[in-house]
Design a protein around this nucleic acid. Structure first.
Length: 799
RNA sequence: GCCGGAGUGGCGGAAUGGUAUACGCGCACGACUCAAAAUCGUGUCUCGAAAGGGAUGAGGGUUCGAGUCCCUCCUCCGGCACCA
């Protein structure tokens, strides 16, 4: 027989599969059980696939292949998240057209996926930068607009000076641009916003009806972060208006000895322009300006030492006791959270305490404690008038009521900044008319196609390159027919990916994002695999869009994804994150060249628990290659009409059970190891019954589809391996044979007895008593108690 | 600080509360070979001559029995973080 040569057999089968129009196809309207398995579609960069892609694509491919073999109707699609900054940057750098760059990169990615033998349904391939696709992304935007969930407003945004682009909150990581790591600056701009905060509570609550891994659930909950508290109004002396503050500790209201406004607070505007009694206007204005120029990093780096400016001449009144208290502005109060203003209770808040110390503000203790101040725990109220003696819990409600307020919920989540001043994205389908204001592009005119431009560079003014396309920009108002201009900002790269899983159910539909029938058949996605880095980005955004689409009657389910999990990163051989600078990057192309796609796939499944980070090991890969060689050689022993060893048959069926269960439980490493155990057992035999070898191939196929397809034919089976059914488990075959039973005396193992599987306690006990070691430990004492676990252990407790 | 995850051989790791270290890697020895590679076989937690004892980050607890459950800690990784 020939040597195992993956370089020959893998391309051969890949070609056959690619040419087969029915291979790996999901059927619409099938009566079979449906399974919608989704892995995040990649952004097709110039770098190509990495080992992490291989891990997740293969894992889900294994599950998919197993379920198909079990007769399920499986949808396992793939597509391209093609819009986005990296392509645009690359295009600018190389002076090329992003359309072309994208096309080329997609070709590379697709080729690599086929080289790995991933069984995607290529008939449903989608591309977010295709006008037939983004027509519907734009359509969804219009629906959001019509339902008051999209609005344009002038706001302070996070600006990445390197990428020259505005960022959503979710795209700022530790004060830096999520993509390039540059510290973000604050800029004021007109921006399209999506009111995701209106869905905050539902996005939070409905995490209970989906099955996400704990880290994702926790990550989203932390990000949305509902916080129960009260909005309390403080009147300003000699003024009609007041300042609303948000506090989670209304019980400490009597201890509020000053008020702090964020430097962004709108009250300051009127204060510096019209308020006569503000005595230090210049100082205040200077501080506000200073804050604006600081990046978040700078603002937080100096965080330990708090700064602020007193609003001289302005006095607020504590609504609980009528005491006059000073007001400050300070950048430790954030403009975007709560009301942008706080009541400061230095006795019971560390930050307020620090600030009060620095500015000599009185500290009034209102919660009893033996600990030193500041004390932020619960306790009994003091110095709080008629509320003295109440617990913090009771006082929260009563004091809130006393000042005429009510308990409300505030979220950490902010509205989604949806404009990008860039070229390579979906045009926002809005028109600005001098007379009518913002007017949506009529749905019949979608898509608003991204026009070709000469230059893709972002402008220093912060405007999109599209703004220079005067022919495109200048248009007429759909409402009044007057002069109007198109919106030149484009959507963020998170737009197209927010609904792509819907499009896969009906990718070529021109009348709707997808036919209702198809959505009903396939949604929700049964299993969704993707990166942890998308917890508060893509995953949150798409849940928001989906809920909105549900509300307007477009999609049939409350949630897009029933289950979400994540694969662990593949680290370099040195245990560090793979990076060019460390020179520890493993290139899948080279691994396939040296070891074959099946070895790479199977190794990545075997290397460790799927959800755990793990270091690459070329030695480990060698072990897998050896294993595949052994399976290959084993085919020489295949024979008909041979005596079946019941012991090996037992191993065979135990393996069917184990592999079936482990693939469903995403425990691929132990599934592969059990296949090795089976192979070891079969190697012991002089001849291997054909049926058993076929079973081995069928169980191995989800991991190593090429070698199994080849061997299927080599040993003379008709048809294709991938069309054969998943092996059936024979529970009877698991029975019989003998087992080693551990015999314990007082919980300590003192020996083992061989017994037939399913032996009774008495039988085992009699055998155990006869053992010298056991007899020795038992001595003359009588047996007080026996614990017998079938086929496992007998524990004898002497008197 | 808050939240999530994880600590088991030389290494990756396995183990429904039931013989800890499966499977793989590495290593050692042996076979084949002029030799090497490849392949095959045997061995491989630790102390002990043996009988036995000790080991799953540390310390307690529950249990006939704990890597697994409970409590108190320690360490590492990841996320959020002046969120009032």
């Amino acid at each position: 027989m020939q040597e195992y040569d993956p370089k020959a057999i893998e391309p051969k089968w890949q070609k056959i599969w690619a040419d087969d129009p029915s291979y790996a196809r999901a059927g619409d309207g099938s009566s079979k059980k449906k399974s919608y398995i989704l892995v995040e579609f990649p952004f097709p960069s110039g770098a190509g696939l990495h080992t992490g892609h291989v891990r997740s694509y293969t894992a889900l491919d294994a599950l998919v292949r197993k379920r198909r073999a079990q007769g399920e109707n499986v949808l396992y699609p793939m597509g391209w998240d093609a819009f986005g900054l990296p392509t645009e940057s690359y295009a600018i750098k190389t002076g090329r057209n992003p359309h072309e760059v994208t096309k080329e990169n997609i070709a590379v990615y697709k080729k690599q996926m086929q080289m790995l033998g991933i069984s995607f349904d290529w008939s449903r391939e989608i591309n977010t930068s295709d006008p037939n696709y983004y027509k519907w992304t734009q359509w969804i935007f219009l629906q959001l607009y019509k339902n008051d969930l999209a609005y344009k407003t002038r706001t302070t945004i996070n600006w990445c000076p390197k990428d020259k682009i505005g960022l959503a909150n979710e795209e700022v990581v530790g004060g830096c641009c999520e993509r390039c790591g540059t510290p973000v600056e604050k800029r004021e701009r007109e921006q399209w916003m999506l009111a995701i905060t209106k869905y905050a509570q539902r996005l939070y609550d409905d995490l209970d009806i989906v099955d996400f891994i704990p880290a994702v659930t926790a990550g989203q909950k932390n990000w949305i972060a509902p916080s129960k508290g009260a909005e309390i109004e403080f009147k300003i002396k000699d003024q009609e208006s007041g300042i609303k503050v948000f506090t989670t500790r209304p019980d400490t209201l009597f201890g509020a000895t000053y008020l702090v406004l964020a430097p962004e607070h709108e009250f300051l505007q009127s204060l510096v322009t019209s308020h006569k009694s503000l005595e230090n206007k210049e100082e205040v204005v200077r501080y506000v300006e200073q804050t604006k120029t600081k990046t978040d990093i700078e603002r937080q780096a100096l965080g330990k030492e708090k700064t602020g400016v007193k609003l001289e001449g302005i006095v607020a009144i504590n609504p609980a006791n009528g005491v006059e208290i000073p007001m400050f502005i300070a950048d430790y109060v954030l403009g975007g959270y709560g009301t942008g203003a706080i009541m400061a209770v230095p006795a019971h808040d560390e930050r307020d305490f620090d600030f009060a110390k620095k500015y000599n503000i009185p500290v009034v203790q209102v919660i009893e404690t033996s600990e030193s101040l500041p004390y932020s725990g619960d306790g009994t109220l003091i110095n709080s008038g008629k509320f003295d003696g109440l617990s913090t819990e009771e006082a929260k409600e009563k004091i809130t009521k006393h000042v005429g307020s009510a308990i409300t919920t505030t979220y950490r989540l902010r509205d989604w900044v949806f404009s990008r001043q860039r070229y390579w994205g979906e045009p926002i389908p809005m028109i600005s008319c001098e007379k009518c204001g913002w007017v949506p592009v009529p749905e019949g005119e979608l898509p608003v196609v991204l026009p070709p431009v000469e230059k893709y560079e972002p402008t220093d003014s912060g405007d999109s390159p599209l703004s220079q396309m005067h022919e495109w920009v200048n248009t007429t108002c759909p409402k009044c027919g007057g002069k109007a201009k198109r919106e030149t900002d484009v959507m963020p790269n998170w737009a197209g990916s927010s609904w792509y899983y819907i499009r896969y159910t009906d990718p070529k539909n021109n009348e709707a994002l997808a036919d209702k029938k198809n959505m009903k058949e396939w949604l929700p996605v049964d299993l969704y695999n993707g990166g942890m880095e998308h917890t508060t980005l893509h995953l949150l955004y798409s849940r928001f869009w989906h809920k909105f689409l549900y509300d307007i009657g477009v999609v049939p389910t409350l949630e897009p994804y029933a289950r979400r999990l994540s694969h662990g990163f593949v680290l370099g051989e040195d245990g560090e994150k793979m990076s060019k600078s460390l020179g520890n990057v493993v290139n899948p192309d080279e691994v396939v060249e040296r070891f074959g796609a099946d070895a790479l796939r199977t190794y990545e499944m075997f290397m460790g628990p799927y959800d755990q980070m793990i270091a690459w090991s070329t030695n480990g890969l060698v072990g897998i290659r050896r294993f595949l060689e052994r399976v290959w050689k084993l085919s020489e022993k295949v024979a008909d009409d041979v005596d079946e060893s019941l012991d090996v048959k037992r191993v065979l069926h135990a393996t069917i059970k184990k592999v079936s269960g482990d693939i469903e439980a995403m425990k691929f490493n132990t599934a592969v190891s059990s296949l090795m155990i089976l192979t070891n057992s079969l190697e012991e035999l002089p001849f291997v019954p054909r049926e058993w070898y076929n079973t081995l191939l069928l169980l191995l196929a989800p991991f190593a589809p090429h070698i199994t397809e080849e061997l299927w034919g080599v040993i003379g089976n008709t048809g294709r391996q991938h069309e054969a059914s998943w092996p059936a488990l024979d529970e009877e075959a698991l029975k019989g044979g003998s087992v080693m039973i551990a015999v314990q005396v007082s919980g300590k193992v003192r020996g083992t007895v061989e017994a037939s599987r399913g032996a009774s306690e008495e039988e085992v006990f009699e055998a155990a008593k006869a053992m010298p070691a056991v007899a020795k430990w038992l001595g003359n004492s009588s047996v007080k108690r026996r614990i017998y676990i079938q086929d496992r252990i007998l524990n004898i407790i002497p008197e």
